[in-house]
């Protein structure tokens, strides 16, 4: 069976949920081989094995880590050359898409980004599904040249366990001088919030301009549900919440089981980031807010009254 390369998304060996999703998808296309760049492999190995990585290509070189995208693309191109995989699956985040972009040019291969589903195609190759134009269209597409490269959005598959060896193979790799031409000179770690990561959370509770800068009720509701907290651009631009929590076209695209929009009007750019959520709930004091066109359940009311009451009821129900 042909190998399918999966680029592992991890922080110091802590593997993100998207990687288990990608490994699950990879098994539909062939035999998953994980590609692990950086330190912490020992911590990662168990998860990679659990979700079906037969092999793990491993590179620890600091040369790769200090230099962003280009070296990672070179490494993948080298592996595409040596392993002739049936496909390469990469997480659909900013960095992943850039790695995929360079890899596509290097290997003269077609690229599909932001896939929400990937399947084997009758007659060979892969078939993908994308949700486009702010979620208003679904597109089926295929890759017709080279090694199919697909970046896959979080929450596109339910991770399924399928124990495998995760036998590691250290790859002999040295990035070219050209690939090292952009360098990270400083890196300030962000403080962890203790909440789930926005793009992989099952539930997201977001606040907008309607919070008037007070996110406490939004955070309390999120915590009662074990949810991640998101924000509209208006809230981010006002400095009320960090940009990395922004949901929408120029923020994160989320697709959770449940999305709760609080004091958010539902502009097209916001919808672009949340419209594919399975269940949508909104609290807004304006009954004509466009967000209500999307909801499964909406409350017309003041979020400062509705959210605390809901939070209490949820806590009570959970006991």
């Amino acid at each position: 069976m042909a190998e399918v390369l999966v680029l592992v998304d991890h922080v110091d060996g802590k593997v993100r949920k998207t990687t288990s999703e990608l490994l699950t998808i990879a098994r539909r296309l062939g035999e998953p081989s994980a590609v692990f760049i950086g330190s912490g492999f020992d911590a990662a190995k168990e998860t990679l094995a659990k979700f079906g990585a037969a092999k793990v290509y491993r590179v620890e070189s600091p040369d790769v880590l200090g230099h962003l995208i280009a070296p990672q693309a070179e490494l993948l191109a080298q592996l595409v050359g040596s392993a002739s995989p049936a496909a390469v699956l990469i997480p659909s985040n900013a960095e992943g898409k850039e790695i995929a972009a360079r890899l596509a040019i290097k290997t003269e291969s077609g690229l599909i980004t932001d896939a929400v589903d990937v399947k084997p195609r009758e007659g060979g190759g892969v078939a993908t599904t994308q949700s486009v134009f702010a979620g208003s269209y679904t597109v089926e597409a295929t890759i017709t040249k080279g090694t199919p490269i697909v970046t896959v959005k979080p929450n596109s598959a339910a991770p399924e366990e399928a124990p495998a060896a995760a036998a590691d193979e250290v790859v002999d790799f040295a990035p070219s001088e050209a690939a090292k031409s952009a360098r990270i000179t400083e890196s300030k770690e962000k403080q962890a919030t203790g909440r789930p990561e926005l793009t992989e959370a099952a539930i997201v509770v977001s606040g907008g301009r309607g919070t008037s800068g007070d996110f406490a009720p939004v955070e309390a509701l999120a915590d009662s549900l074990g949810a991640a907290v998101g924000a509209s651009r208006a809230a981010v631009d006002a400095g009320w919440y960090p940009h990395t929590s922004q949901v929408g076209q120029t923020g994160k695209q989320v697709s959770p089981q449940l999305y709760v929009a609080c004091g958010i009007s539902g502009a097209i750019q916001h919808r672009a980031g949340m419209q594919t959520s399975k269940t949508i709930v909104a609290v807004n004091k304006d009954n004509e807010a466009p967000i209500f066109e999307l909801v499964d359940f909406g409350v017309v009311g003041d979020l400062f009254k509705v959210l605390p009451q809901a939070t209490e009821a949820i806590k009570a129900a959970k006991g």
Partner: peptide, 16 residues
């Protein structure tokens, strides 16, 4: 979807 107007019990309805 279902849209309700808060009449003092909007949060409870949401939780339900």
């Amino acid at each position: 979807g279902t849209i309700v107007t808060d009449e003092g019990d909007g949060g409870e309805k949401l939780a339900a």
